[in-house]
């Protein structure tokens, strides 16, 4: 073209307008309205008397129940982890007997409701063994010699039942994490001349335990709540204490709310612990 050199056109800029998601706003509004209706129904029916709620929130018996729930929830996490690791190692071994035992364990303890397991241990153990005697062989020293009925307290039966059931879940978590562990790192460690146990403790375990931390925290929260099942064998955890009270006072909803509050606190504690541990050991 013969015309004078053109001015370079200034680059046009456009503002980008995102698509509005009208459908989501409608669903949101409807959901909010329904929630408000539900809350109004609760308030109008005066299902919770704030005075009663506050009165029982720090009731000594209930606080003891909270302590007991925390105790069983926490102890059973440790026992279940220990048993779960053993069951997972059985499953990962190349021995057919150990593999079968482990698979059978998981099938049984994961398949039967935890409530049945707790009731079973509480009732069946004293029938299976009348007395229990633990002695150090060849010394004549007897550590324990007692009637099984006295040994199987609600606390111990609940701890046993919850731990053994939970171990089945934990063994699967551990097995999954170990099975998906980077085999290359194991080869590298072996190639450096590290012994089998060193490979496990120095290379595999540190990384596997970090990988299962979120799952374990999940299980910890579950365990705190599962302690409520122990009420059926007369263990004085939160729910049992609360029911004992409302059988006489009939303040059912208030007391259930108190129990729910404390389970939320226990769950929040577990979540806090998880957050702290995840900060302390960041993912690499």
């Amino acid at each position: 073209m013969s015309s004078a050199p053109e001015e370079p056109a200034a680059p046009e800029t456009f503002r980008v307008v995102r698509r509005r998601q009208w459908g989501a706003w409608v669903v949101g509004a409807v959901t909010l309205a329904l929630l408000l209706l539900l809350a109004r129904a609760g308030v109008e029916a005066r299902i919770v008397n704030p005075e009663t709620f506050r009165h029982y929130l720090f009731d000594l018996e209930i606080l003891i129940g909270v302590k007991n729930a925390f105790l069983i929830g926490t102890l059973s996490l440790f026992i279940a982890t220990a048993v779960g690791i053993v069951v997972a190692l059985f499953r990962l071994s190349r021995n057919p007997i150990l593999v079968a035992v482990s698979a059978g364990y998981v099938c049984l303890f994961r398949g039967v409701p935890m409530l049945i397991q707790i009731l079973f241990w509480f009732n069946a153990l004293p029938m299976m063994f009348q007395t229990i005697r633990i002695a150090i062989p060849f010394t004549g020293i007897t550590l324990v010699n007692a009637l099984m009925v006295d040994v199987v307290t609600p606390f111990r039966a609940a701890l046993l039942g919850i731990s053994l059931a939970e171990a089945a879940y934990l063994s699967e978590i551990v097995r999954g994490a170990v099975a998906s562990f980077d085999r290359g790192q194991i080869l590298a460690a072996q190639a450096l001349g590290m012994r089998g146990h060193q490979v496990v403790t120095r290379v595999v375990m540190p990384q596997v335990s970090r990988a299962i931390l979120p799952s374990i925290s999940n299980e910890y929260i579950n365990l705190m709540k599962s302690t409520s099942l122990a009420m059926t064998i007369g263990y004085l955890e939160v729910l049992r204490v609360v029911t004992n009270i409302y059988y006489t006072t009939l303040e059912v909803v208030e007391l259930l709310c108190v129990a729910a509050f404390w389970y939320l606190v226990l769950g929040a504690f577990a979540t806090l612990l998880q957050t702290i541990l995840e900060r302390l050991y960041p993912n690499r």
Binding site: D182, G184, L187, A188, A189, A191, Q207
Partner: peptide, 11 residues
């Protein structure tokens, strides 16, 4: 030994 995928200990 060194490997194709390096296999450093990630932690």
């Amino acid at each position: 030994m060194a490997f194709q995928s390096f296999n450093l200990f990630r932690h």
